[in-house]
Amino acid sequence: MFYRPEDGHGLPHNPFNAIVTPRPIGWISTRGSLGDNLAPYSFFNAVAYVPPQVMFASTSAKPDREGTKDSVAQLRETRVFCVNIVEYAARDVMNRTSGPWDAGTDEFALAGIDKAACETIDCPRVANAPAALECTVTQIVQLPGEANFVTFGEVTGIHMRDDCLVDGAFDVTRFQPLTRLGYRDYSVIREVFSLQRPGE
Rank of each mutant, 00 (worst) to 15 (best):
M1D: 15
Y3H: 04
R4E: 14
D7K: 15
D7I: 13
G8T: 06
H9S: 01
N14F: 12
F16Q: 02
N17F: 11
A18S: 15
A18V: 02
I19M: 10
V20Y: 03
T21N: 09
P24N: 03
P24M: 02
I25K: 01
G26A: 05
I28H: 09
G32P: 05
S33C: 14
L34F: 11
G35P: 04
L38I: 06
A39C: 10
A39N: 05
A39Y: 08
Y41W: 04
Y41D: 13
F43K: 09
N45S: 15
V47L: 11
A48Q: 10
A48P: 05
A48M: 08
V50A: 06
V50T: 14
V50M: 12
Q53C: 13
Q53F: 12
V54C: 15
M55P: 14
A57L: 14
S58P: 06
S60N: 12
A61M: 11
A61H: 10
P63T: 07
P63L: 04
D64K: 07
R65C: 15
E66T: 06
E66P: 02
E66W: 04
K69T: 12
D70S: 04
A73V: 04
Q74Y: 14
Q74W: 09
L75C: 05
R76A: 14
E77S: 05
E77W: 02
V80A: 09
F81L: 12
F81E: 11
F81W: 13
C82R: 06
V83L: 00
N84W: 00
N84I: 06
I85E: 01
D92N: 11
P100M: 02
W101A: 15
A103E: 06
G104Q: 12
T105H: 13
D106E: 06
D106I: 01
E107M: 09
F108R: 13
F108G: 09
A111H: 07
A111G: 02
G112L: 10
D114V: 06
K115V: 00
C118G: 04
T120I: 11
T120E: 07
D122E: 15
C123T: 09
P124T: 13
P124R: 15
R125E: 09
V126P: 01
N128F: 08
N128W: 03
A129G: 00
P130R: 03
A131C: 02
A132P: 05
A132W: 08
C135H: 05
V137M: 10
T138R: 07
T138P: 00
T138K: 14
I140T: 11
I140L: 11
G145F: 08
A147P: 10
N148C: 09
G153T: 09
E154D: 13
I158S: 04
H159Q: 05
D162V: 04
C164Y: 02
C164E: 04
V166G: 06
D167Y: 11
A169Y: 07
F170Y: 10
R174Q: 07
P177T: 04
L178S: 01
T179D: 02
G182E: 02
Y183R: 09
D185N: 07
D185G: 05
S187D: 01
S187W: 03
V188S: 02
I189A: 11
R190E: 12
E191I: 12
F193A: 13
F193M: 09
S194Y: 00
L195P: 01
Q196Y: 03
Q196H: 08
E200W: 12
